[in-house]
C-alpha cells in the first residue's frame, strides 16, 4: 500500500459517502444517473469475485464490501425507495448504457491477461469502469443546475483514478514490473473523460458560480 493508492481509495470512498449523503439528506436523486450507478454495481460485482476466495487484508475485504453494498444500496434506493425513486430524472437519463456493457465485454474477451473467468471478468470491470461515468456526464450536461453535492460526487469520483495512476507510476519504480497496460490505458481514458468536467468545475469554483456544463 502506498500513499497514492490510499489517497485514491479514500477519495473514492468519500465520493460514495457524498452521494449517500445527498440521497439521504435531500431524499432526492435528481441529477444522478441511475445507469451510471448500475454500471458501477456491475463493475464491483465483476471485479471483486475473489472477495470470498482470496483474503488480501482486512482493509481490502472491508473496502470491497463497502463498495459493493453502497453501489447496490444506491441502485435499490433510486429504483425502489418510495420517496427517492420519484425524484429520478428518468426521461433525462437516456444514455444507452447497454452498449458500454457490450463493448467492455467484447474488449475483455479480446484483451485480457489470461483467458480465465476471473481475468476476463477483471478486465471487463476495468474497461467498464473507464466509461461508466458517461451517462452521468451526459445527464449533468442536460440538467441545467447541478447541485453542489452532485458536483462534488463527480469531482471525487474523477480524482480517485488520477491518484491510482500516480500509484501505478510509484509501483512501476519501486516494485517488480507487472504487465499493467490494461489498467494503465483504461485509467488514462477514465481520467481523461473527466477533463472537461474538471475544467468547468474549476471555473465554477474560481468564479464562485453554480456549476454548469455546456450542452
Amino acid at each position: 500500500m502506498n500513499v497514492f493508492r490510499f489517497a485514491g481509495d479514500m477519495t473514492h470512498l468519500f465520493s460514495v459517502l457524498v452521494l449517500l449523503l445527498k440521497i439521504y439528506a435531500t431524499k432526492s436523486c435528481s441529477g444522478i444517473s441511475l445507469k451510471t450507478q448500475e454500471l458501477y454495481a456491475l463493475v464491483f460485482l465483476t471485479r471483486y469475485l475473489d472477495l470470498l476466495t482470496d483474503f488480501i487484508s482486512l482493509y481490502n475485504t472491508v473496502m470491497k464490501l463497502v463498495f459493493i453494498s453502497s453501489s447496490l444500496a444506491i441502485v435499490w434506493c433510486m429504483r425502489a425507495h418510495p420517496v427517492v425513486r420519484r425524484t429520478y430524472d428518468k426521461d433525462q437519463d437516456t444514455f444507452r448504457h447497454y452498449t458500454l456493457v457490450a463493448g467492455s465485454l467484447v474488449l475483455a474477451l479480446l484483451f485480457h491477461d489470461r483467458f480465465t473467468i476471473r481475468e476476463v471478468c477483471w478486465a471487463f470491470s476495468i474497461y467498464l469502469e473507464a466509461v461508466a461515468i458517461l451517462p452521468q456526464l451526459v445527464l449533468l450536461q442536460r440538467s441545467r443546475n447541478v447541485d453542489n453535492l452532485t458536483g462534488q460526487y463527480v469531482f471525487f469520483l474523477g480524482a480517485y483514478r488520477a491518484f491510482y495512476i500516480l500509484n501505478w507510476i510509484y509501483r512501476y519504480f519501486t516494485e517488480q514490473h507487472f504487465s499493467r497496460w490494461i489498467p494503465w490505458i483504461a485509467g488514462l481514458v477514465q481520467t481523461g473523460l473527466y477533463a472537461d468536467f474538471f475544467y468547468y468545475y474549476y471555473l465554477s469554483w474560481k468564479n464562485n458560480v453554480k456549476l454548469q456544463l455546456p450542452a
Partner: peptide
C-alpha cells in the same frame, strides 16, 4: 510469460 497484473488493488 510476463506476470499478470496483481489484483491486490481495489
Amino acid at each position: 510469460e510476463v506476470e499478470a497484473t496483481p489484483h491486490d488493488e481495489l
